[in-house]
Design a protein around this nucleic acid. Structure first.
Length: 378
RNA sequence: GGACGGGUGGGUGAGUGGCUAAAACCAGCAGACUGUAAAUCUGCCGCUCCUUGCGGGCUACGAAGGUUCGAAUCCUUCCCCGUCCA
């Protein structure tokens, strides 16, 4: 089984419902991909992820390269075998770490020199190296190394980042295709990443340059790093309108529950975000009526489920009072149950989004989601 | 009965004359989190008043007295607690 992407339905907004076929399963899009940086979605077992219906998860090149090392993972049969995950995996390139570990790295045209956050040792991540690591990991979708900058950024900085990202993408593409050629064809898809900060023309320019390299899918990176939601949406639109309709578009690192449909309405097919998992560990639960900060004293005697409209196994069984107690007591089960619910909540929203596209209702669904969500905790 | 040691804010526990409404940690209350250096981080945490200010008043370091311009800190007595000796 190899790779393909097929658009099944389009909505008046520009949203698409599609089917992404990988060697590790067929994924219905638009899709939300839970983040499992270190080869685990924190708080969830692979069994739980399957139960939740996660068809694809994220892992991270930089983290797995440092620990346990991509060669070890290759030796142990690749990332899927290593982590006993049957479904698809997308690996991020380490480009986000250029941004998030800014104090620990130095960028040159050659690549990024990192000081390991684990032991301080120095490592050079180049576009070729990032591709090589991801080939060793054997993820289904590999991302090119990009330069992700903070927003807002001065125009010159954004221009330089686009230039570098394009050059790096070219090198990564070349390396990847050479390696694939030696192995008798690609066992992996590689996506390019559009940068350009909040400058519409730079975004378009970045997209055009990447299009020349003929990637099977394109990502929009460097967004949701502080700019207003409307700007994120506008930048996504600038890019998706230029991208080929028959290839998947991935908006990296988004978003809040009430924003997901907005991105889909801009023609986005794939998203990922640490929010549902991280917020869960920090006692923030997402519900159909807004966020529930479960540690709040108001939930001490609350016998209701986290979300009365949720059918997840946590909501079917446990009360808010119990969840609150687990968090107050610092019990690890608190994080597990909360993560389970939040991921289910995100995946449920995506199911509803796909359905709304089929019926041409996405705009309605998006505004309904916003309104319901703004209602605040019940 | 005697000898030491000790009693500090909800808890543990610093502080041994003014910079102390009193460190730090915990608990408590509230908030943040967007391609994960995050089971993390931030703020508040005696009462009260207002013109919300590195503002005013009150109460507070076992109890009561005292010394001092000034005391959680020094002195006296008392009450508790711990260890050891009889």
């Amino acid at each position: 089984m190899s790779f393909s992407f097929e658009v099944l339905h389009s909505d008046p907004t520009g949203a698409r419902r599609g089917k992404l076929t990988t060697p590790h399963g067929v994924i219905e899009t638009p899709v939300f991909m839970p983040v499992g940086t270190a080869a685990t979605v924190k708080g969830l077992t692979q069994d739980a992820l399957e139960e939740l219906g996660a068809g694809i998860i994220l892992a991270n090149t930089y983290h797995l390269y440092l620990r346990p090392g991509h060669e070890l993972i290759r030796k142990l049969g690749g990332l899927h075998a290593f982590m006993a995950w049957r479904n698809a995996i997308l690996t991020d390139s380490g480009g986000y770490q250029v941004f998030s570990l800014s104090e620990l790295r130095k960028i040159t045209d050659e690549g990024v020199r990192f000081r390991s956050h684990l032991d301080g040792s120095e490592h050079l991540l180049t576009p070729e190296k990032a591709a090589e690591i991801q080939l060793a990991l054997g993820s289904d979708i590999a991302m090119v190394l990009d330069e992700c900058i903070e927003t807002p950024a001065p125009r010159e900085v954004a221009e330089a980042a686009v230039k570098r990202t394009t050059e790096w993408a070219r090198r990564a593409r070349r390396y990847f295709l050479d390696a694939a050629g030696r192995n008798g064809g690609p066992a992996q898809w590689q996506f390019g990443i559009v940068q350009g900060a909040t400058f519409a023309d730079l975004r378009r320019e970045s997209a055009r340059q990447l299009l020349e390299m003929d990637f099977p899918g394109y990502a929009v990176g460097g967004l949701a790093v502080g700019e207003p939601h409307e700007v994120t949406c506008k930048m996504a639109t600038e890019v998706t309108t230029l991208l080929p309709k028959e290839r998947p578009r991935y908006l990296m690192g988004v978003g809040r529950p009430e924003q997901l449909a907005d991105y889909v309405a801009r023609g986005i097919d794939m998203m990922d975000c640490v929010l549902p998992t991280r917020a869960a560990r920090h006692a923030c639960l997402y519900t159909s009526e807004g966020r529930v900060l479960i540690k709040n004293a108001r939930y001490i005697e609350d016998q209701r489920p986290i979300d009365p409209n949720c059918a997840c196994s946590v909501c079917r069984r446990y009360t808010r009072a119990y969840l609150r107690h687990l968090f107050a007591a610092g019990e690890i089960t608190a994080a597990i149950l909360a993560t389970h619910h939040n991921v289910r909540f995100y995946l449920d929203i995506m199911r509803q989004i796909r359905e709304a596209i089929t019926f041409g209702h996405l705009a309605n669904f998006a505004s309904e989601l916003r309104v319901r969500y703004a209602g605040g905790p019940a």
